[in-house]
Nucleic acid binder design. Structure first.
Lengths: 194, 194
DNA sequence: TGCTTTTGTCAACACGCGTTGATATTTGCT
DNA sequence: AGCAAATATCAACGCGTGTTGACAAAAGCA
C-alpha cells in the first residue's frame, strides 16, 4: 500500500475501486451489459456496497460517464492547421493512458440508452459547438460542428468501438493527415457557402 | 384483409407480423432494450410464438439485422462526382420508406452487442471494401474504405441514432455537398499519398 | 476498556427475462 | 360431419437483475 493510498480514508479507497471497476465494465460492455454484481466482483467487494456508495446503478453510470473535453486553446500560429491539431488531440485522448475513459463509456452506451445519448448531445452543445465557434466564428458554427462531429464520432466508432480492421491498423499520422484535412475544409468553408 | 394478405397462409402472415414488430423494436431500443414480450405485444400474439417461429431471440435478431447494401453501380459519367453520389444514395436508404430497416437495427446494437458488431464488420469487409476498390482501384482500398466509412458511420450516428440537433436539421443537399466532397477527396487521393 | 460510528457482509425481495411443454383452438381435407 | 394437422394460448420454469434491510466486523475515540 503506497503512502498515497494510506492517506486516503478506507471509504474513499473503496469508492474509487468501485468507480474504476465501473468505468472499465461500462466501457467494455455498455450500460446493460455491465451488471452491478460484475462491477462489485471486479472491485472485490459486495454488490450492496455499490448501491450504498453511489445510490443506484443509474447514478454510478452518470458519474462514470461524466467528463470534460477541455480542448486546449489554439495557438494562433497554427491557424490553418487547426484540423490536424484537433485530430491529433482526439487521438491523444483516446489512446492515452486514460483510454477507456468516460468518453468510451458514453459512446458505447449512447446508441441504446437514452440517458447516455442525452448526455452526449449536451456535451456536443455545450463544449463542441462553442469550441468550433471560437475557431471559425459564430456564423454556421452549428453546421460546422455537426459535420466535424460526424467525422470524429465515426472515427471513434470505427476504430475503438466496432474495431473495423483497416481503421484499427491505420497509423496515427495517416489519420491526422487525412481526417485533419477534411476537418480543415469544414472550418475554412465560408459561411455563405455552407 | 386485402387479397394480397388473403393469399398468404396464416402462418406466413403472423411470421411477418412478428418480423416487422421485431425490426421496429430492435431499431428503436437495441437488442437488450427490445424484449420478446414487447415484440409479441406489438405483433398482437403470444410471446411463445416468437420462439416457435424464429427459434430464439438471437436468431430473430440475426434475421432482422440481415441486409445487403447493394450500391447501384456507378455510371462512368459521374466519375469525379462519385462522392456526392454515394452520400445521396446513403441518404436515400436512410430516409426512404424503409427507414428504420436492418441498417438501423444493426447500428443501434453494434456498440454494445458483439454479434451485431461482428456482422457490421462483415458487411464492411464484403460489401464496402469491394465497392470502393471497384471505384478507386485495389490499391489502398481498405484505407479509403476505412476513412469513408468513418465519415458515413458518424453521419448515421449523429443524424439517426443520437439525433444531434444541428445534424438532424441539416438539409440533404447540404450534406450531399459537403460530405460528398470529403469522400471525393478520399477517393481521389493517389495511393502513394495515402 | 467500553461505546459509537464507520465499513462491510449476507440473505432475500420483487421483477423481468428467454424459453418450454402441455393444452386449447382453428383450419383444411375427405 | 369428423378426423388430422396447423396454429395459437397459457402457465410455469430457472435465471439474473437492481435494490433493501438486518446483522457483523472494524476503526476511532473517551
Amino acid at each position: 500500500m503506497t503512502d498515497n493510498d494510506a492517506r486516503k480514508s478506507k471509504s474513499r479507497r473503496t469508492r474509487e475501486a468501485i468507480f474504476i471497476a465501473a468505468r472499465r465494465r461500462f466501457a467494455a460492455h455498455g450500460y446493460d451489459g455491465a451488471s452491478v454484481r460484475d462491477i462489485a466482483a471486479d472491485a472485490g467487494i459486495d454488490p450492496a456496497l455499490v448501491i450504498r456508495y453511489f445510490g443506484s446503478k443509474d447514478a454510478l453510470f452518470a458519474e462514470a460517464s461524466d467528463f470534460k473535453l477541455d480542448l486546449p486553446p489554439l495557438d494562433s500560429k497554427m491557424r490553418g492547421r487547426a484540423g490536424e491539431y484537433m485530430v491529433q488531440n482526439f487521438l491523444d485522448i483516446w489512446e492515452g493512458p486514460d483510454a477507456g475513459g468516460a468518453f468510451t463509456v458514453l459512446l458505447r452506451s449512447a446508441a441504446s440508452n437514452e440517458a447516455a445519448a442525452a448526455k452526449l448531445r449536451e456535451v456536443f452543445a455545450t463544449q463542441v459547438i462553442p469550441s468550433v465557434a471560437a475557431l471559425a466564428g459564430t456564423e454556421g458554427a452549428q453546421q460546422r460542428a455537426g459535420l466535424i462531429t460526424s467525422h470524429m464520432l465515426g472515427l471513434a466508432m470505427s476504430r475503438y468501438i466496432l474495431k473495423l480492421p483497416p481503421v484499427v491498423s491505420m497509423p496515427p499520422e495517416m489519420i491526422v493527415t487525412h481526417v485533419g484535412r477534411a476537418i480543415q475544409i469544414y472550418l475554412d468553408t465560408p459561411s455563405d457557402r455552407l
